[in-house]
């Protein structure tokens, strides 16, 4: 029983960066821009968060830096795709390469050519009073670090933003039919840019979660495909925050299981276990197959004339 509780708690923790990135991706994709760049935004967030926290010893500043790092890359993507009508997926890929190079370069460049050993204490778990004493559920859900609570508490607001507010309606209109949205007075280019950058803030915080809360350090390319898993989770959850959360938990559980199996000493190689999240994501995508309805105008650039 203890093993299962630990496994579930780990799943929730591992799902957190995926969830933050996926929520950011939803914002971008609902407004009609593929979010292939969230991998790079996470990496920028992780880098900026660790460097800022390491240099200032101020966690809050670190989190701000993470959000800023993600948003900075997002604004490059936003400018390229919305203003210059660059191809969204390949631009996303290019910005992932850019962020990989930039973070790996700067982590050495800032500290005189050699990457410093940055050891930060990972964020501690906070027990929620009363709730954490619920058997099983309390241990799984209410003894988590701060950013995990933040990520899961964001799901409902993002849902309401998209479904119940004027802003969300405008975003979805731009994602479904930018010409119509333009006709009723909103500016699709600006809406898309804002959505991508807001998504970058969330994805950057996802990177911060990974770097500051999970690992307490920055290493080259440390996001290691988590952004792509988050993209898969968005498709699995059909662009609906609550369902995407379930998708993230699913992939989180798969990773937690793979990690735990390494500990149990089963005769499965660590390489095969590391493949598990990707193979499972592919299997799930194959399983849902067609009939996934994406925002109608996603991937298409918009011009006023």
């Amino acid at each position: 029983m203890k093993i299962i509780i630990e496994l579930l708690a780990a799943s929730v923790r591992i799902a957190t960066p995926l969830l933050l990135a996926a929520l950011g991706g939803i914002l971008s994709e609902c407004a009609g821009t593929f979010a292939v760049g969230i991998e790079g935004m996470m990496l920028m967030g992780a880098f900026a968060g660790v460097v800022a926290t390491y240099s200032t010893h101020n966690l809050l500043l670190g989190l701000f830096a993470s959000a800023f790092g993600g948003a900075a890359l997002a604004s490059i993507i936003a400018t390229a795709t919305a203003c210059f009508r660059a191809d969204q997926m390949v631009t996303g890929l290019a910005s992932n390469i850019l962020s990989l190079g930039l973070t790996s370069f700067l982590v050495r460049g800032f500290f005189g050519g050699q990457a410093p050993v940055m050891r930060l204490a990972p964020l501690p778990a906070i027990s929620v009073p009363i709730l954490s004493r619920i058997p099983v559920l309390g241990e799984v859900l209410f003894q988590q670090p701060a950013l995990t609570y933040a990520a899961f508490l964001l799901v409902l607001p993002v849902h309401f933003l998209l479904v119940k507010t004027q802003i969300g309606l405008t975003m979805r209109a731009v994602g479904e039919n930018p010409a119509a949205a333009f006709a009723v007075g909103s500016d699709p280019i600006r809406v898309r840019m804002a959505a991508i950058i807001a998504g970058g803030v969330l994805a950057g915080l996802g990177g911060a979660e990974l770097a500051l809360q999970e690992l307490g350090t920055f290493t080259d390319g440390m996001t290691n495909g988590r952004g792509f898993i988050a993209l898969a989770a968005i498709i699995v959850g059909r662009w609906q925050p609550l369902k995407v959360m379930i998708g993230c938990l699913l992939f989180g559980t798969a990773s937690a299981l793979a990690l735990n199996m390494q500990g149990w000493g089963l005769p499965v190689s660590s390489y095969v276990l590391q493949m598990a999240p990707y193979v499972i994501a592919l299997a799930v995508l194959i399983g849902i197959g067609r009939g996934v309805k994406m925002p109608a105008a996603i991937g298409r650039s918009f011009t006023r004339d």
Binding site: F84, R85, I97, S99, L100, G101, L102, S104, F105
Partner: peptide
């Protein structure tokens, strides 16, 4: 100067080509 600079040059080149093509 760290060699990971290549990826920066590569990424920026790609984004520039994509922007020019789109524009």
């Amino acid at each position: 100067v760290p060699s990971s600079l290549v990826y920066v040059i590569e990424g920026v080149t790609m984004i520039c080509v994509l922007c020019a093509m789109g524009f």
